[in-house]
């Protein structure tokens, strides 16, 4: 179902600091100012279609969808 929430993760070895994730989903991704590496903040959950977009746009292919969570209300 399109409303499913999924959890996202960042592979810090692959992150090139492009900042696309932070721009698209500022509630979920934060780029470290010094290291320029993205990490997941907060719940790390997104509706599946948005998670797929941010994973697709990541230039380093560093973002993955790790596990399906509960369906949204």
């Amino acid at each position: 179902m399109s409303g499913d929430l999924v959890r996202v993760a960042v592979d810090s070895e692959r992150c090139i600091g492009g900042g696309q994730c932070e721009m698209l989903e500022p509630e979920v991704f934060l780029l470290d100012e010094d290291e320029v590496i993205s990490s997941v903040i907060g719940s790390g959950e997104l509706p599946r279609p948005r998670a797929e977009v941010v994973a697709h746009r990541c230039p380093g292919a560093a973002i993955s969808i790790v596990e399906p969570q509960r369906p949204s209300e």
Partner: peptide
């Protein structure tokens, strides 16, 4: 890339 990436993030 990370050496220069910080200056070019959308933010």
């Amino acid at each position: 890339r990370r050496m220069v990436a910080g200056a070019f993030t959308p933010k």
